[in-house]
Design a protein around this nucleic acid. Structure first.
Lengths: 353, 353
DNA sequence: CCCTTCAATGGAAGCGCTTCCAATAGGCTA
DNA sequence: TAGCCTATTGGAAGCGCTTCCATTGAAGGG
């Protein structure tokens, strides 16, 4: 009963053109009259035709190899959920489009980190590469990759990366803004922000969002204590301990990812603090970690799998010759309200930020 | 400088046979003299030849579609690490071998769960399916799948599933034994075991390992309190609360996965208990969760990604006609010692199990 | 000893697609 | 108006592999 999948020849037949022409239309090739192009597209639509990626890659030559690069530090958990979710999404995309994927963790501290990435591309003839933060904002690296004839798509670029390559991500500034609004509406006035590794610009944007929300609420952004973390559970704990030892601990701590928030939570327990009574803590990403700690974390959901999937799609589109300026694709985020945030204890709710 | 990849014709040329014969050897076809077979294999070796999965799937026809099925309950987190890790491994395998992967979560409670799985196979013409627990031990389902002409490989079958299909997993009994030995060596004598959902036989085997270790240590396995959980963080907390309210709480709690252990940890903190001083807690799987809670969990590492990857490989081998009895591939596990286990507080270390 | 049978092997036709190259037809130039 | 250029389009050759079918001997049967 199930009809055989239509092939490019079926489309050609229906459109009354040669197979070659259909291929041209499909791959955005030049020299096709607009009328013909429309006719082909209509036939594709009518037959619900999808190219067979296997056949395409067989015929098309090329390595059909993409790379996904993560920055990993010595103490960064290489199997973190963030990493896994992105790889999962990228793999799904590659499978659907007939590409191979090479996933690599590169020590971000390494002085020749750029060379490592470039070697990867050269040795495996990668046609394209997906860069995650902070590589996503490494303009020099991006340019070097291009020089090798390879294409680039970034995930969550936060700064200059956006101007030099296609990218995918959420609106991090808005994410920071939203979570801050949530906290402000609960009555918080004294905040601390725990940032990620230096150079992770998209995480820094979350802080910009926080500042905007504070300004809107009539508070001074400078009053926010900034803690420089590195996205690890461990750093979250250490910095929170330092924070709590300080002269005037905040009532709300906004962390740039869930792992650090989990660390903060853990230390807070150790100090006998009530969360959220004494301290509200928020994460970012909405990884499973946020549901597995106590109390479960209020966080910002980020569609990591979709981001990586879309990054692959964008990369393949470039590979197929689509032209035009760099596009940044914004996926939607959402504040996920759980139990790590609440009204600050009355006695503390007075001071100013 | 990089030589072009050798093709099947190169192998044929070097072996002095026709392309057809090489293909036959590669796919375990019949009617090839042993001498010729060896000659071909030698050529394959010499050229380091690898079949091009794209070409194979193009030529071979067939759907080249595999399915990966998870049991999900209403409250089971569908994006758990366990699930993600397995899907990641399976995707890697499929990508390398040129197969498509369909991942599906099926409500385990549903009365027509079997039909759902069978429909999945039929509608997508899946050539093979990977079953995870507890489906891995559902002999009826496995037979039904076969009747549809599809192949089956199980991940972590714990009982009868092992006798009716190929499988991949660790030695769960040994895993339970090892973790119990660790606890015994620390001086624990009173244990509780938190199991997973009913029907998850491989998790039940961990309990068998515990019993063996106790017996070896001169303790009575019946003394172990058994808690019936469902692998969720939530159930871990609830059951632990009940356990602690009981007449004689144990000094060591062995959980069948990390999430439940995290829940147990969380409740223990809430009760003001010292972990591991008052209660040692262990997980199972070594998912990132175990490093993200406080104190980090002592657990049993299970190579989930490799397991799923190998399951795909085994499935594809069957698809390619390899014969012989069902094979169970045992991957190695390891106790990962972290800080959630330690010597029991002296005052409590006396009672018997 | 001839004919049938069958195991072992080779030949050749595609799988669905890209791409090189040839062909066609206007549009221009001189 | 002849000659040339160029924007479009089609033809056909594979990409690396599986598989149907033909071929070849040698073993087995009468």
């Amino acid at each position: 009963m199930t009809l055989k999948k239509p092939t490019i020849d079926d489309v050609a037949g229906l459109a009354g053109v040669a197979r070659t022409t259909v291929s041209r239309v499909l791959n955005g090739g030049p020299n096709v009259r607009d009328e013909v192009r429309q006719r082909v597209l209509k036939a594709v639509e009518a037959l619900n035709f999808r190219v067979n990626p296997q056949a395409r890659s067989l015929a098309g030559g090329g390595s059909r190899m993409l790379a996904l690069v993560f920055a990993s530090d010595l103490d960064t958990e290489p199997n973190s959920f963030y990493t896994s979710a992105l790889e999962l999404g990228a793999l799904r995309g590659c499978l659907a489009l007939g590409y191979q994927l090479l996933t690599r963790h590169v020590a971000q501290q390494s002085p020749d980190r750029r060379r490592l990435v470039l070697d990867l591309i050269a040795s495996h003839k990668c046609q394209g590469i997906i860069l995650t933060p902070p590589f996503a904002d490494d303009v020099t690296l991006i340019e070097d990759v291009r020089r090798l004839g390879s294409h680039v798509v970034t995930i969550s670029p936060g700064g200059s990366g956006r101007d030099v390559a296609d990218g995918v991500g959420i609106d991090d500034e808005a994410g920071g803004y939203d979570i801050a609004r949530h906290l402000l509406s609960l009555g918080h006035r004294r905040f601390a922000f725990m940032s990620g590794i230096e150079g992770h610009l998209s995480a820094a944007r979350r802080r910009d969002g926080l500042s905007r929300a504070l300004l809107e609420g009539g508070l001074k952004p400078d009053g926010v204590e900034i803690l420089q973390g590195d996205f690890t559970f461990r750093s979250g704990g250490i910095l929170t301990a330092r924070l709590l030892d300080g002269p005037s601990p905040p009532t709300a701590l906004i962390c740039a990812n869930d792992d650090m928030a989990a660390g903060a939570l853990s230390i807070s327990h150790g100090r006998g603090l009530d969360v959220p009574g004494d301290l509200s803590i928020t994460g970012f990403d909405d990884t499973p970690v946020s549901a597995i700690v106590w109390p479960p974390l209020t966080t910002v959901h980020q569609p990591l799998k979709d981001m990586a999937h879309d990054a692959v799609v964008a990369l393949v589109e470039r590979l197929n010759g689509s032209a035009g300026g760099w596009r940044f694709q914004t996926l939607s985020h959402a504040v996920v309200q759980r139990e790590s945030t609440g009204r600050p204890a009355p006695k503390r709710a007075t001071a100013t930020a």
